[in-house]
Amino acid sequence: MKTSTPSSSIEDYVKVIYSFTEWQDKPITSTQLAQRLGVANSSVSEMVRKLKDQGLVLHKPYSAITLTPQGVRLALSMVRRHRLIETYLVKDLGYSWDEVHDEAEQLEHAVSDTFVERLAARLGNPSRDPHGDPIPSADGSVRMPSAHRMTELDDGHTGRITRISDENPELLRYLAAEKINLDADVEVRGRKPFGGALVVRIGSPGTSRDVDLADEVASALWIHSDSAHPGCRMAGL
Protein backbone atom coordinates (compact mmCIF):
# COMPACT_ATOMS: atom_id res chain seq x y z
CA MET A 1 0.00 0.00 0.00
CA LYS A 2 1.47 3.36 -1.02
CA THR A 3 1.74 5.96 1.73
CA SER A 4 0.30 9.32 0.76
CA THR A 5 2.51 12.38 0.91
CA PRO A 6 1.65 14.68 3.84
CA SER A 7 0.07 17.98 2.92
CA SER A 8 2.03 21.18 3.41
CA SER A 9 -0.30 22.07 6.31
CA ILE A 10 0.52 18.84 8.12
CA GLU A 11 4.23 19.42 7.51
CA ASP A 12 3.95 22.94 8.92
CA TYR A 13 2.09 21.76 12.02
CA VAL A 14 4.55 19.04 13.02
CA LYS A 15 7.50 21.35 12.33
CA VAL A 16 6.08 24.07 14.59
CA ILE A 17 5.29 21.56 17.35
CA TYR A 18 8.84 20.25 17.21
CA SER A 19 10.47 23.68 17.02
CA PHE A 20 8.53 24.89 20.08
CA THR A 21 9.98 22.12 22.24
CA GLU A 22 13.45 21.98 20.68
CA TRP A 23 15.06 24.34 23.18
CA GLN A 24 12.77 23.67 26.13
CA ASP A 25 10.97 20.74 27.75
CA LYS A 26 7.54 22.37 27.96
CA PRO A 27 5.11 20.99 25.30
CA ILE A 28 2.99 23.27 23.14
CA THR A 29 -0.71 23.96 23.73
CA SER A 30 -3.42 24.41 21.12
CA THR A 31 -3.57 28.15 21.84
CA GLN A 32 0.18 28.54 21.43
CA LEU A 33 0.08 26.52 18.22
CA ALA A 34 -2.67 28.77 16.85
CA GLN A 35 -0.64 31.87 17.72
CA ARG A 36 2.50 30.55 16.04
CA LEU A 37 0.68 29.54 12.87
CA GLY A 38 -1.56 32.62 12.78
CA VAL A 39 -4.78 30.60 12.56
CA ALA A 40 -7.97 30.29 14.60
CA ASN A 41 -8.16 27.91 17.57
CA SER A 42 -10.95 26.02 15.82
CA SER A 43 -8.65 25.36 12.84
CA VAL A 44 -5.99 24.01 15.17
CA SER A 45 -8.46 21.70 16.90
CA GLU A 46 -9.54 20.25 13.57
CA MET A 47 -5.98 19.74 12.34
CA VAL A 48 -4.80 18.22 15.63
CA ARG A 49 -7.58 15.64 15.33
CA LYS A 50 -6.32 14.84 11.84
CA LEU A 51 -2.73 14.59 13.05
CA LYS A 52 -3.83 12.27 15.84
CA ASP A 53 -5.77 10.06 13.40
CA GLN A 54 -2.62 9.77 11.28
CA GLY A 55 -0.51 8.78 14.26
CA LEU A 56 1.59 11.94 14.26
CA VAL A 57 0.62 13.45 17.64
CA LEU A 58 -0.66 12.49 21.05
CA HIS A 59 -3.37 14.74 22.44
CA LYS A 60 -6.22 14.69 24.95
CA PRO A 61 -8.81 17.45 25.36
CA TYR A 62 -7.45 20.49 27.26
CA SER A 63 -3.94 19.04 27.36
CA ALA A 64 -0.69 19.85 25.56
CA ILE A 65 0.24 18.37 22.17
CA THR A 66 3.22 16.05 21.74
CA LEU A 67 4.65 14.36 18.68
CA THR A 68 4.76 10.59 18.29
CA PRO A 69 7.99 9.00 17.03
CA GLN A 70 6.44 9.07 13.54
CA GLY A 71 5.60 12.75 13.99
CA VAL A 72 9.14 13.52 15.15
CA ARG A 73 10.60 11.87 12.05
CA LEU A 74 8.41 13.94 9.74
CA ALA A 75 9.15 17.11 11.72
CA LEU A 76 12.91 16.54 11.56
CA SER A 77 12.69 15.99 7.82
CA MET A 78 10.98 19.37 7.43
CA VAL A 79 13.32 21.11 9.86
CA ARG A 80 16.29 19.76 7.88
CA ARG A 81 14.83 21.11 4.64
CA HIS A 82 14.02 24.49 6.15
CA ARG A 83 17.40 25.07 7.76
CA LEU A 84 19.43 23.87 4.80
CA ILE A 85 17.50 26.23 2.54
CA GLU A 86 18.04 29.11 4.99
CA THR A 87 21.77 28.34 5.02
CA TYR A 88 21.90 28.28 1.22
CA LEU A 89 20.05 31.60 0.94
CA VAL A 90 22.53 33.29 3.29
CA LYS A 91 25.76 31.66 2.08
CA ASP A 92 25.18 31.52 -1.68
CA LEU A 93 22.47 34.06 -2.49
CA GLY A 94 23.42 36.90 -0.16
CA TYR A 95 20.23 37.01 1.91
CA SER A 96 20.46 38.55 5.38
CA TRP A 97 19.51 36.36 8.33
CA ASP A 98 16.25 38.26 8.93
CA GLU A 99 15.02 37.59 5.36
CA VAL A 100 15.43 33.84 5.04
CA HIS A 101 12.65 32.38 7.19
CA ASP A 102 9.70 33.31 4.98
CA GLU A 103 11.54 32.29 1.80
CA ALA A 104 12.43 28.91 3.29
CA GLU A 105 8.80 28.43 4.39
CA GLN A 106 7.77 28.61 0.74
CA LEU A 107 10.59 26.56 -0.76
CA GLU A 108 10.69 23.68 1.75
CA HIS A 109 7.43 22.20 0.44
CA ALA A 110 8.45 22.44 -3.21
CA VAL A 111 11.83 20.73 -3.33
CA SER A 112 12.46 16.99 -3.57
CA ASP A 113 14.42 14.78 -1.19
CA THR A 114 17.12 14.49 -3.86
CA PHE A 115 17.41 18.27 -4.04
CA VAL A 116 17.71 18.52 -0.26
CA GLU A 117 20.55 15.98 -0.09
CA ARG A 118 22.42 17.56 -3.01
CA LEU A 119 22.00 20.94 -1.35
CA ALA A 120 23.43 19.55 1.90
CA ALA A 121 26.44 18.16 0.00
CA ARG A 122 26.93 21.47 -1.83
CA LEU A 123 26.99 23.29 1.50
CA GLY A 124 29.41 20.80 3.06
CA ASN A 125 26.77 19.20 5.29
CA PRO A 126 26.53 22.09 7.77
CA SER A 127 25.61 21.31 11.36
CA ARG A 128 23.66 24.52 12.03
CA ASP A 129 21.71 27.23 10.22
CA PRO A 130 22.44 31.00 10.13
CA HIS A 131 20.70 31.46 13.50
CA GLY A 132 22.59 28.65 15.23
CA ASP A 133 19.75 26.13 15.22
CA PRO A 134 21.04 22.58 14.63
CA ILE A 135 20.39 21.01 11.23
CA PRO A 136 19.22 17.39 11.63
CA SER A 137 21.29 14.87 9.70
CA ALA A 138 19.74 12.69 6.99
CA ASP A 139 19.36 9.83 9.50
CA GLY A 140 17.39 11.98 11.94
CA SER A 141 20.11 12.62 14.50
CA VAL A 142 20.40 16.08 16.03
CA ARG A 143 23.41 17.48 17.86
CA MET A 144 22.08 19.96 20.40
CA PRO A 145 24.63 22.29 21.96
CA SER A 146 24.53 22.62 25.73
CA ALA A 147 23.27 26.18 26.00
CA HIS A 148 21.04 28.39 28.12
CA ARG A 149 19.14 31.61 27.59
CA MET A 150 21.22 34.60 28.56
CA THR A 151 18.49 35.74 30.98
CA GLU A 152 18.95 32.49 32.96
CA LEU A 153 22.67 32.99 33.59
CA ASP A 154 24.32 34.26 36.76
CA ASP A 155 26.49 37.36 36.91
CA GLY A 156 30.03 36.57 35.81
CA HIS A 157 29.03 33.71 33.50
CA THR A 158 31.17 33.55 30.37
CA GLY A 159 30.66 31.71 27.10
CA ARG A 160 29.76 32.39 23.50
CA ILE A 161 26.56 33.00 21.61
CA THR A 162 25.53 29.71 20.06
CA ARG A 163 21.95 30.39 19.05
CA ILE A 164 19.82 33.45 18.26
CA SER A 165 16.06 33.02 18.04
CA ASP A 166 14.69 33.88 14.60
CA GLU A 167 11.12 34.56 15.75
CA ASN A 168 11.38 38.33 15.35
CA PRO A 169 13.01 39.69 12.15
CA GLU A 170 13.18 43.20 13.65
CA LEU A 171 15.18 41.86 16.58
CA LEU A 172 17.57 40.15 14.17
CA ARG A 173 18.07 43.44 12.32
CA TYR A 174 18.73 45.18 15.65
CA LEU A 175 21.35 42.59 16.61
CA ALA A 176 23.01 42.88 13.21
CA ALA A 177 23.19 46.66 13.57
CA GLU A 178 24.71 46.24 17.04
CA LYS A 179 27.19 43.66 15.66
CA ILE A 180 25.96 40.95 18.04
CA ASN A 181 26.53 37.73 16.13
CA LEU A 182 26.88 33.97 16.54
CA ASP A 183 30.06 32.76 18.27
CA ALA A 184 30.73 36.14 19.89
CA ASP A 185 32.37 35.84 23.33
CA VAL A 186 30.12 37.10 26.12
CA GLU A 187 30.28 37.76 29.83
CA VAL A 188 27.21 38.57 31.91
CA ARG A 189 28.11 41.61 34.01
CA GLY A 190 24.85 42.15 35.91
CA ARG A 191 21.69 44.21 35.86
CA LYS A 192 21.29 47.91 36.12
CA PRO A 193 19.39 49.06 39.23
CA PHE A 194 15.62 48.80 39.67
CA GLY A 195 15.05 46.00 37.15
CA GLY A 196 17.03 47.73 34.44
CA ALA A 197 18.78 46.30 31.40
CA LEU A 198 21.14 43.34 31.53
CA VAL A 199 24.73 44.52 31.04
CA VAL A 200 26.77 42.13 28.89
CA ARG A 201 30.39 42.34 27.76
CA ILE A 202 30.74 41.18 24.16
CA GLY A 203 33.91 40.43 22.23
CA SER A 204 37.39 39.10 22.81
CA PRO A 205 39.78 40.66 25.35
CA GLY A 206 41.14 43.93 24.00
CA THR A 207 38.20 44.49 21.68
CA SER A 208 35.30 43.85 24.04
CA ARG A 209 32.55 46.36 24.80
CA ASP A 210 29.69 46.54 27.27
CA VAL A 211 26.14 46.66 25.94
CA ASP A 212 22.79 47.04 27.66
CA LEU A 213 20.25 44.43 26.60
CA ALA A 214 16.52 44.52 27.27
CA ASP A 215 15.01 41.22 28.42
CA GLU A 216 13.35 40.69 25.02
CA VAL A 217 16.79 40.79 23.41
CA ALA A 218 18.66 38.81 26.07
CA SER A 219 16.02 36.05 26.07
CA ALA A 220 16.61 35.53 22.34
CA LEU A 221 20.31 34.77 22.90
CA TRP A 222 21.51 31.31 23.92
CA ILE A 223 24.95 30.97 25.48
CA HIS A 224 27.23 27.94 25.29
CA SER A 225 29.96 27.38 27.86
CA ASP A 226 33.21 26.05 26.43
CA SER A 227 33.32 23.32 29.11
CA ALA A 228 29.96 21.91 27.96
CA HIS A 229 29.61 19.19 25.37
CA PRO A 230 26.89 18.90 22.71
CA GLY A 231 24.33 16.16 23.09
CA CYS A 232 23.01 13.96 20.32
CA ARG A 233 19.57 12.51 19.95
CA MET A 234 17.83 10.45 17.30
CA ALA A 235 14.44 10.96 15.70
CA GLY A 236 11.70 9.37 17.72
CA LEU A 237 13.80 9.12 20.90
Rank of each mutant, 00 (worst) to 15 (best):
S4H: 15
T5F: 14
P6L: 04
S7G: 13
S8V: 07
S8P: 05
S8C: 12
S9D: 11
S9R: 15
E11K: 12
E11I: 11
D12S: 05
V14K: 02
F20H: 14
T21I: 03
E22G: 03
E22V: 04
S30G: 04
T31C: 13
Q32M: 11
L37C: 00
G38K: 01
N41K: 07
S45F: 00
S45Y: 01
R49M: 10
S63R: 07
L67K: 01
Q70Y: 11
A75I: 02
A75N: 02
S77T: 15
R80Q: 13
H82W: 06
H82S: 06
R83C: 14
L84D: 00
E86P: 08
T87D: 03
Y88P: 05
L89N: 02
V90L: 03
K91F: 07
D92R: 15
L93I: 05
S96Q: 13
S96A: 13
S96M: 12
W97I: 15
D98E: 06
E99M: 04
E105D: 15
E105T: 15
E105V: 15
Q106I: 13
E108P: 04
H109D: 12
S112F: 04
L119I: 04
A121K: 13
R122M: 11
L123Y: 05
R128V: 07
D129V: 08
S137G: 15
A138V: 12
V142L: 10
M144N: 06
P145C: 03
A147S: 09
M150Q: 11
D155T: 14
G156C: 02
G159L: 01
G159M: 04
I161K: 01
T162D: 15
I164Y: 03
S165R: 14
D166W: 12
E167N: 10
E167I: 10
P169D: 08
L171I: 07
L172M: 09
Y174T: 05
Y174W: 14
Y174K: 07
L175C: 01
D185W: 11
R189C: 06
R191C: 03
G195H: 02
V199T: 05
V199W: 00
V200L: 09
R201Y: 09
R201P: 01
I202D: 05
G203V: 07
T207V: 08
S208F: 08
R209V: 05
L213Q: 00
A214H: 08
D215M: 02
E216N: 09
A220H: 00
L221R: 02
L221S: 06
I223Q: 01
H224G: 03
D226E: 14
A235K: 07
